[in-house]
Amino acid sequence: MATSQAVVRPANRFFRRVREGNEIAYTITVICAASILLVTVLLVFQLWNNSGIARHKFGWSFIGSQTWDPVNEDFGALPLAFGTLVSSALALLIAVPSGLMAAIFLAELAPPKASDVLTFLIELLAAVPSVIYGLLGIFLLVPILKDHVVPVLKSTLGWLPIFSGPFYGYSMLAAGLVLAIMIIPFIVSVSREVLLAVPVEQREAALGLGATRWEATWQIVIPYASRGIYGSIFLALARALGETMAVTMVIGNNPKIAMSLLAPGYSIAAVIANEFSEASSAMHAASLTELGLVLFAITVIINGAARLMMLTTAEHAK
């Protein structure tokens, strides 16, 4: 018996492994994993290829130029990249503190039943299509900003350059606010999970040493969960950077760089969505594709920086 098993030929062994399912599972999973790489490579390749004439014509000045002129076929990315970065930064500025506070409440302080119901609602919000948030922006946010918020802002902080100039509703501020509302659910639901995953012993030890509930949360639980919280913020930022529909509906679609948050702006994703289908010339289409490349680069740089930051904080923690 023992000898007959020892002389099983390699081919037979392979078929046995196939029958057991290992090979098939291996093949399927490896193909799926490789396809991710393939999609990324194809994406860069296509963006690079289709933006050829624009890259050739404008070179690096594409990134620094402020003109977006389809008539004279003169294109530059700066005001659009500016709009993308400023609207996303504004969104983070609003969403991170409020999202984090909500997550702390849900994970640490709320009664479990209330926490479950609220969490369910928040996860529902994360699944709402962005065009709906755009409508919310147009019908609710813009009128409220125009009639109530901005008059107050102008009378108190109007001397700040970021609140100068006339306000028509459609603005960088409106875009930042809509984005903030859209990304808060991401921050809340991921951060809550992370906070809940902090071992109970950590809290017990802090409380045992005489810390108050809030001290235990703020000084022990939050630092313990910080990497996961950063993760939720970067996930939210990625969504804000790439958000198209809701932004284009409220940002005012004007490719100018303005100091004031009350002035209209434009973002990379919004201009691509607006203009690509009707691009009037090959150069116009190529420039829009190059904008896609710029947005891709911004995303890669920010995500790379995020990774780096998380690595260094991990080392600090050790």
């Binding site: 003109t67 977006w68 002129d69 389809p70 008539v71 004279n72 147009i138 813009v142 009128p143 028509y168 509703g169 459609y170 284009t248 509906m249 005012g252 679609n253 004007n254 490719p255 209209p264 434009y266 607006n274 203009e275 009707e278 009037s280 116009h284």
Partner: peptide, 29 residues
């Protein structure tokens, strides 16, 4: 300064997406 095309470099103004975008912005502003 500007010229004629299906899209131009607008000296001033707000952009609305589609006829409905322009109409909505005009109605609200």
């Amino acid at each position: 300064k500007v010229g004629a095309n299906t899209a131009v470099n607008w000296p001033v103004g707000l952009g609305g997406k589609g006829s409905e975008g322009v109409t909505g912005t005009v109605k609200q502003t």
